[in-house]
Write a protein that binds this DNA or RNA. Structure first.
Lengths: 227, 227
DNA sequence: ATTCGATGCATGATGCATCATAATGCCGCA
DNA sequence: TGCGGCATTATGATGCATCATGCATCGAAT
């Protein structure tokens, strides 16, 4: 009943479209950390001129989803352990806040939507489709902040996820199960409209999920530096 | 002893320079909410072509420091009460986290730097220079997150302040005293390396400072809508 | 006859493409 | 391993076509 979804209005200009395409690519892990992106190359592949690609890249750099290592060298950033930990701590705070607020004001329809996501996630996991499971997990987290009615917070989260995208795709893309079990306590809290419990639950989820990623960072970082 | 200030490394390309110029202008309140910006106009005034201005505007839009009301209508956003409250809540969480960490690991030199800022702020206030006082207050908040060693958080904060910039400049630019008194409990907590106390102090500061701004939003918003 | 509303046109600003240039990455060599 | 040259690549400028905004004129109703 909240009117139309205004966020879909962005598809007017080419630059915005390319930006979204690149966002999805980063989230999906189509680019790996330390990969180099070339504007002309992308323009050729997309069949456009360099201008809109330039626009999209610039926006991604502003999001820190890409970095300009030098004025002519655009790369996917390699998160250091310290940076990843910082992002994790920020998420613990922000998503905790969002989960609490979402729990307090969640409608039955919203609760059902979250449950549906969990169910689809389970199915994807059972089918061994880890890529889909990871994506559904991500959507779940975004939905929570959406239901908290905090668009600014949601945007910050989107950016943080964009920065982590290549890394977590690298970690969970290969093997391992997604951490869906931790979401059920959160659902219980939301159903009970218990804000603090919801915050604790999602915070525990984030911290637990960071384990495999931290292991991976330690293992992958020196090797990547050698390349 | 923490090396150079890496944020100044951006001055390589024209677009980055213009971006920073526009950021300062927004912070200083050179643009008012609902002002319209024209790319060609700015390009003429800066003596460059439209390309770097375009880049800068695009980055500002990505920061949500500007909005594209229509594809050819770039404006300074008018914060709604809800959006301002959301930003305030996010700041309460994030700056609380940063203040706690800064308190725990602050060096004597850093403590002295903060005290110096407070002193200069007092002087500016005594001289009736509210613009400078507001700017110093802002620098104080940024320094806290810098000393917390959280660059990602600092960047998020910078963006939030960029969004609020025109509004608070509008409120505090005219008259009224800056809320410097609330910073002294924070300094006490930092000197004592008491993280939780520092968090509480800065949170109280943010909440108290939001009072005049909220009053102003209520007063200014219907009037602006009528225009 | 006057005022309100609608349609059409002109102005103006932006998005995208193309071009020139200067700086850099990469590769090979000492 | 360190350095130099070449090809490459981003940056900045310019031009054109498109589209929205605003104004003026025209028509109709009271």
């Amino acid at each position: 009943m909240s009117g139309f979804d205004l966020t879909l209005l962005e598809h007017d200009n080419l630059g915005g479209t390319i930006y979204q395409k690149l966002c999805e690519a980063l989230m999906k892990g189509a680019f790996k950390p330390n990969d180099r992106l070339k504007i002309r190359d992308l323009a050729d592949r997309l069949g456009t001129s360099v201008t809109p690609v330039r626009d999209a890249i610039l926006r991604l750099v502003q999001d820190q989803a890409l970095v300009l290592r030098s004025p002519r060298d655009i790369r996917v950033p390699m998160l250091t352990r310290a940076t990843y930990l910082e992002i994790r701590d920020i998420r613990v705070n922000l998503e905790g806040l969002a989960a609490a607020r979402a729990a307090e004001q969640a409608t039955p329809a919203q609760i059902e939507a979250l449950e549906s996501l969990l169910k689809r996630n389970e199915e994807a996991m059972a089918a061994g489709n880890t890529a889909l499971a990871t994506e559904l997990n991500q959507i779940f987290h975004f939905k929570v902040s959406e239901f908290a009615d905090m668009p600014v917070l949601g945007d910050i989260l989107r950016r943080l996820w964009l920065q982590m995208g290549p890394l977590i795709a690298d970690v969970y893309g290969g093997a391992g199960r997604t951490m869906i079990d931790h979401h059920y306590p959160l659902m219980d809290a939301i159903r009970g409209h218990d804000g603090p419990a919801a915050a604790s639950a999602i915070q525990a989820d984030i911290l637990l999920a960071s384990g495999p990623i931290l292991e991976r960072i330690d293992g992958v970082h020196p090797e990547a530096l050698a390349v």
